[in-house]
């Protein structure tokens, strides 16, 4: 297995976006790309990352391999790469390590690191294809700010989607808060658009703690998609055009 990115920045951001939620995980490498699927320790959230082979500068995977890696260790290794350095990952069949090589574009500095692989049981959850009742596309910075603001007042947020607006509400010991975002088009700046596709109205409650973990992916993508159906996990997708995506799933809180 050998995969090269032109710039380390994307991989650094991907690891930063998931390492606090899932500690150790397996990267599944096939000829179509690298992916991981992992639950957080409390089994409430699920992370799915896909890095497509087309998004790499060069990519080769002769035999499918599952590489068990501590994401904190991977973040440490990636700290040694400059944002504009190229990154090459190499793993040979049956080897217990993965190699990272970083090269500056002027080629005057090359650094190499070897990370020990871990044995990790890989059990994947089956994520069904779902027709969601409501899909909201919005700037990722808006979601990050909304979740951070509401976290000051409560632990949970109720997200309600109607035809032309989406409402985030919370309440706690000191009071209540809500943020309403209305659909807005923008032909010249599509990344600032708020688009709401509503088949059925949805209202779901989630723990803000997890949403705040998810919005760590905001530096990867200007936009985010919230896909919701009643009594179904929320899907928060940060698309990376040409490269892949990070999808987070979160179980809703249920009424007693």
């Amino acid at each position: 297995f050998e995969a090269k990115w032109d710039h380390a920045s994307t991989l650094k951001k991907v690891i930063d976006a998931v390492k606090d939620l899932i500690g150790d995980t397996s990267w599944d490498c096939t000829n179509t790309g690298m992916s991981l699927q992992s639950m957080d320790s409390s089994h409430v959230a699920l992370v799915h990352v896909l890095l497509k082979s087309e998004g790499f500068e060069s990519y080769r995977c002769d035999r499918n391999v599952s590489m068990g890696i501590s994401l904190n260790s991977m973040a440490k290794v990636l700290k040694c790469a400059g944002n504009d350095d190229s990154v090459t990952l190499r793993h040979e069949s049956e080897s217990s390590v993965v190699n990272f090589a970083f090269e500056s574009h002027k080629e005057e500095r090359v650094s190499e690191f070897e990370l020990k692989l871990m044995n990790i049981d890989t059990e994947h959850l089956g994520i069904p294809e779902t027709e969601y009742d409501s899909i909201i596309k919005m700037p990722s910075a808006d979601l990050r700010r909304t979740c951070a603001d509401l976290s000051q007042f409560g632990d949970s947020v109720t997200i309600s989607c109607a035809k032309s607006d989406v409402r985030f509400e919370t309440s706690g010991d000191i009071g209540t808060g809500n943020v309403r975002l209305s659909a807005r088009g923008s032909s010249d700046k599509p990344e600032t658009e708020i688009a709401i596709e509503m088949i059925n109205p949805v209202s779901l409650t989630f723990a803000l703690k997890y949403l705040n973990f998810f919005t760590k992916a905001a530096p990867l993508s200007d936009t985010v998609k919230l896909c919701m159906s009643n009594n179904h996990p929320l899907c928060v997708e940060f698309p990376m055009p040409e490269v892949g995506y990070i999808r987070y799933y979160l179980a809703p809180k249920i009424d007693e």
């Binding site: 089994h43 409650t205 723990a207 799933y249 179980a251 809180k253």
Partner: peptide, 14 residues
């Protein structure tokens, strides 16, 4: 606070 079921309730292990 309302209970939060594990994600496997919705997406069982394959």
């Amino acid at each position: 606070t309302n209970p939060q079921p594990p994600i496997e309730t919705f997406f069982p292990f394959m």
